[in-house]
Computed example of a mutant assay.
Amino acid sequence: MSDKHLSSQFDAELNSISSNVLEMGGLVESQLHQAVYALVHMSLETAGQVIETENRINQMELHIDHEIISTIGRRQPTARDLRFLMAISRTTQNLERAGDEVARIARMVKSIIESGTPRNLPISELRMAADLAAALLRKTLDAFARLDTVSALSIIKGDDEIDAEYDGFLRKLITYMMEDPRTISPSLDLLFLAKSIERVGDHAKNIAEQIIFIVKGEDVRHASVDKVASVIG
C-alpha cells in the first residue's frame, strides 16, 4: 500500500474525528438553548428533555476518545498530527463539561419551577448571559471547523463579556435579597444557575485556546490576552 494512500486514509480519519467533535458541540449548544427556553417559559417538559440528553453527550465523548486512542495506536502520528489529536481530546473534555453545566442548568430550572420561585425575580435577565454563552460556543465551533486563530482570539476576549454579565446579575440578586429576605433561597438558586452559564463561556474560551495550540503549536492556556495576540502575530 502506497504512502500516499496511507496518508489519505489518515486524513480521512482525522476529518471524521473533527466532524464528530463538531456534532458533539452542536448538541451542547442546542441543549443550552433548550435549557434557557425551559427557564424563560417555566417548562418542566423541556428541562426534562435536556437532562435526558446528558448521557448522549457523555457517550459521544467516550466514542471520540476511543477513536483518538485507536488512531494514535495505528498511525503513530508525527508531532503536528499528535498535537492536533491532543487538542481534540482537550476540546471534547471541555464540551463534555459544558454539557454537564447545561444539564445542571436544566436541573436547577426544574427545581425553580417545582419550588414556585417568585416571578418578580430577574429570571428573564439570565437569558442575555445564556444567549451570549451560546453565541460564543457557536463561534468557537465555527472557528474550530476553520482552524481560525483570529476568531479564536476574539472568543477569548468575548468571554470577558459573559463574566461582566454574571457580575452584574450577582449585584442585582444581592439587592433583591437585601430588600426582601424571602427571596434569599430562590435567589441563590438563580445565582448557581448564572454561574453554570458563566462556566459554559469558560469552556468555549478553553476550546479557542486549543485552536491556537493546533495551528501555532504553542500552549496559551493561562496566558494573558496580549500574550495570545502576540502568538497569533
Rank of each mutant, 00 (worst) to 15 (best):
Y37M: 05
T53Q: 12
R56N: 08
I51L: 13
E61I: 03
M60N: 03
I69N: 08
I64P: 03
I64E: 03
I69E: 13
T46D: 08
T53K: 11
Q49N: 11
V50A: 04
M60P: 00
A38G: 01
G48R: 05
T46A: 05
I68Y: 01
G48F: 06
I68P: 12
Q34I: 11
E54I: 02
I72Q: 01
E67R: 13
T71N: 08
G73I: 09
E61Q: 09
N58S: 11
V50S: 10
N55Q: 11
I57V: 15
N55R: 12
H66F: 06
E67K: 15
R56I: 11
H63S: 11
A38P: 07
Q59R: 10
E61L: 11
S43R: 01
A35P: 01
D65I: 05
Q34N: 13
I64C: 07
S43N: 02
T53S: 09
V50T: 00
Q49I: 05
G48C: 06
Y37K: 15
V36D: 01
Q59D: 14
A38E: 00
H66P: 05
L39M: 14
I64D: 10
V36P: 00
M60E: 06
M42C: 14
A38H: 01
I72K: 00
H66A: 15
V40Q: 10
T53F: 10
N55M: 14
Q34V: 13
A47W: 06
A35G: 05
V40L: 07
V50Q: 03
L39F: 02
I68C: 09
A38R: 04
M42Y: 12
I69P: 06
I51H: 04
M42H: 09
I69F: 09
I57M: 00
V36E: 06
G48A: 13
D65N: 15
V40M: 01
I51E: 05
V40F: 03
A47E: 01
T71A: 11
T71M: 09
A35C: 04
V36G: 05
S70W: 09
Q59W: 06
Q34D: 15
V40D: 02
